[in-house]
Design a binder for these strands. Sequence first.
DNA 1: GCCGTTTTCGGCCCGACTGTTTTCAGTCG
Length: 574
Amino acid sequence: MIKKEISKIFRDMADLLEVKGDNPFRIRAYRRASQSVEGISSDVSKMTEKELVSIPGIGKDLAGKIKEYSETGKIGAWEDLKRDVPEGIIDIISIPGVGPRTAKLIFDELGISTLEGLESALEKGRLRGIGHIKDKTEQNILKGIKLIKKGRERVSIGLALPLAEGIVRYLKEEPYVDQISVAGSIRRWKESVKDIDILVTSDEPSKVMHRFVSMAGVSDIIAKGSTKSSVYMNDGIQVDLRVVDDACFGAALQYFTGSKEHNVRLRELAVKKKLKINEYGVFDAKTEKFLGGRNEEDIYKVLDLKYVEPELRENTGEIVASAEGTLPKLIEVKDIKGDLHVHSDWSDGGHSIEDIAMAASRRGYKYIALTDHSKGLGIANGLTEERILAQIKEIDKVNKQMNDFTVLKGLEVDIRSDLTLDIRDEVLSRLDIVVASIHSGFGQSKEKITKRLISAMENPYVDVIAHPTGRLIGKRDAYEVDMDEVLKAAKRTGAVIEINAFPARLDLNDIHTKEAKKLGVKLAISTDTHIEDHFDYMKYGVAVARRGWLEKKDVINTKSAKALIDHLKKKRKD
DNA sequence: GCCGTTTTCGGCCCGACTGTTTTCAGTCG
């Protein structure tokens, strides 16, 4: 993943430049570029200079550095910089509470440039008295190092959201808590988050603060002020709480929802209009007159912008679209009429066909596609051709008992390492819907894996590609796959790409989803349900779709069962 | 280092909390 490497180099360069005391705006430019590069869906190494420069935050100079890395595997300026400032200092800056100034101080005075070196110096008391460092700072740095060693990884939204909702419920129990909302990257539904942000309005902020820092599960209080507090929870996740007045709830919610880049853009627009935006509202820059902020909409309105949904606030084109009135009408959970990736106890699911169908019907769905594994996945009790035919009969029986609900006959067929499917076409042709996916040979080359997916799509009976990159967030990286080529092939063949809503998968991800839409590829949002509760994961899949700018019409399981079947039949004919 | 219906040069978002230098720098989001 060359773009990840380049993105990291730019980020690291920003850190080292900061330690050097370089121009802060130059540093910001590197950070911005790092983010931009990471967000690109196509292969940076294949892009021309002209294409590179069209990326926001990439100018001539940085385009040159990207080219240099693509061609030589190195960036001269980065190598030079590392000679000036040791790379290990990046680890030191990553300690909470230690920034570039402190890191530089420690390096200049003691020559320390590694975490281990810093820890042993601290234990020997060598930092005491250097610059601003006294005993309290010393303790804080030690605490920070321990925290890093514990591994402050990003937490998946599937873990963070329930935790955040729990804290909201706990705070809400008190009458002095008026309005309350989760903010930050959770409200934007990012697939993984670094911390939890919560916003409260109250007439008695100090009481709120006290209740917050004394809740169960708090391991450490980072800061406790009159309007803002931060704590670490036992599992290492940080939670920030802000209390504001009712009159500025909207402004604060907008501000704390971010992203930072989105907000910076808004404030730049505000400056041009002789306005000032902060977490307390929109103000006239000169007279300081309050112009709005009770509702989030106020902020956008005053800038002549249409309201931007939180999931879109990443400074990836949403502000321009908002100004032009071309924002998408984002898909919602209630638009979903059925789930197209569901397992039963015929393979590795936990319920009978009838029970899982009833569960889906209770949730208001009109259909599910039963997509048990095929025989290639022996460990999951995958179905042989004979069992598939038997299952078809069983589904017919269940459908007769159901009211206003259809179980579609489906299969999650295995794409084998040799490009073939493990179930014969004659059997596939008997099914309503065939979902194909890779469960083996993850280590194959990018070319090979890409070919496997494309050849599966070229089979007339394959309708959907499930979890197309195979990643498990925090556990297993995506296999190497040329997603550009896969999406183009999807467009060409009419195959649908799945957004797997399982919180550990979220695969397709948001960036590729946006790319798929641009190419006109249709998507399905499915939960990969194995037990009934997994149906509740649909919201995470819809969130990915919303972050990918999808509308109802882009997603096939917003159709009625009949319209869906008609849509799928078209591919088989073509 | 990027960027331009005010600019190709001169800008580049804004505020809270901590520790400690009694007026503010450093860090964070």
